[in-house]
């Protein structure tokens, strides 16, 4: 087994071990923290596909996270009151079934990503960052000023959606769902990045001119990666909505986009499990430093700054470097 694979397995195993250990010790709250780490890690895994492998620095992935969340909230609230969501062009009723909601959440995000991606990919570099940020902000303002689904106050629903054969209210069972989807997304990313498409995507990141010269049209490849990436992040948004049984416009905010990006970088750009490690460390810090000081985000900022300036490979990069050093030293 190569070293990257071992690191990835260790990270995932640690997350599961923490959740199982907390469950056995009867600490439901810690299980919920691990669930949150799995969900935010999943959002990061989505972004990593575009950012890490495709070099597409999207500062607007909160848009897809929020769309996933709102689709879940809207389906759940309609299921509760029995009104149809749509009557034209076809009747669409609310639902409580996660298996029905997830594809809808991913479909909605895919459509949004197709539109946003097609426009944003007309630009590159720093324009792309600003344009994706702006489109996410547009959806944020739309969510605030559209009172139908709560507007600024957000939308809460009282019953967590259901999954066949499981009690989603039990923290460890809900963790199992989230960790299972995270594992699937990681597997999907691993397969996709080794496929013809994934190699083409990485070629366009490394050298657009050369990849064009060997016959890869960059834009369709990038757009596909952007849409896939948005769908994974939307799935995370749907899980996050169910975790809190509440969605609010803050899921769409630029701050959320920044955080998802931080998960990816903190762990290590373009590393399979990087976002999972990043999200877990982020939540650990929030949990440990939060009670010590209200201003823990300032510390987070300083730490992030140090990582960007002095350890560009992120936490996994640091670990691998340390491993290599002990081996040779």
């Amino acid at each position: 087994m190569n070293r990257d694979l071992i690191v990835n397995l260790v990270i995932f195993a640690l997350l599961v071990a923490v959740a199982l250990g907390a469950h056995v010790a009867g600490q439901g709250f810690t299980v919920t923290l691990a669930t949150k780490a799995a969900i935010l890690g999943l959002a990061g895994v989505g972004l990593n596909l575009a950012l890490g492998y495709g070099g597409l620095v999207s500062f607007g992935h909160a848009a897809f996270f929020g769309i996933g969340g709102y689709v879940t909230g809207i389906f759940a609230s309609h299921a509760a009151n029995g009104d149809p969501i749509l009557t034209l062009p076809f009747t669409l009723m609310g639902s409580n079934e996660m298996l029905g909601i997830w594809p809808m959440a991913m479909l909605a995000a895919a459509l949004a990503a197709l539109l946003i991606g097609a426009l944003s990919l007309r630009t590159s570099g720093v324009y792309f960052i600003m344009v994706t940020l702006a489109f996410a902000q547009m959806i944020y303002y739309f969510a605030i000023s559209w009172p139908r689904y709560g507007g600024e106050d957000g939308l809460s629903f009282y019953v967590r959606n259901s999954f066949p054969g499981l009690n989603t209210f039990d923290p460890i069972q809900y963790f199992a769902i989230c960790a299972g989807l995270l594992a699937l997304a990681l597997l999907f990313t691993a397969v996709v990045t080794q496929s013809r498409f994934g190699l083409a995507l990485q070629a366009t990141r490394q050298n657009e001119q050369r990849s064009t010269a060997v016959g890869i049209r960059a834009t369709p490849v990038r757009l596909t990666a952007f849409v896939l990436s948005a769908m994974i992040t939307a799935l995370a948004g749907a899980l996050y909505a169910d975790l809190n049984r509440f969605v609010s416009p803050s899921m769409f905010s630029w701050h959320m986009s920044g955080e998802i990006m931080v998960f990816v970088i903190l762990g290590g750009v373009g590393r399979l499990c990087g976002p999972v490690a990043g999200a877990a460390v982020f939540i650990l810090l929030e949990h440990l430093l939060g009670p010590v000081s209200d201003h823990w985000q300032a510390l987070l900022g300083l730490m992030l700054l140090a990582i960007v300036l002095f350890a560009p490979g992120g936490l996994i990069g640091l670990t691998l470097k340390a491993l290599r050093r002990t081996e040779h030293g």
């Binding site: 950012l51 620095v57 500062f59 570099g125 720093v126 960052i129 920044g258 990006m261 931080v262 970088i265 750009v269 209200d294 201003h295 823990w296 985000q297 300032a298 987070l300 900022g301 300083l302 992030l304 700054l305 960007v308 300036l309 560009p312």
Partner: peptide
């Protein structure tokens, strides 16, 4: 640009929390 975005995002966190403090 990715490093620039992250480092200046980190600066926002520091400045905002510092000012709030």
């Amino acid at each position: 640009h990715l490093d620039q975005v992250l480092a200046t995002f980190a600066l926002i966190l520091v400045f905002s929390e510092g000012t709030r403090w």
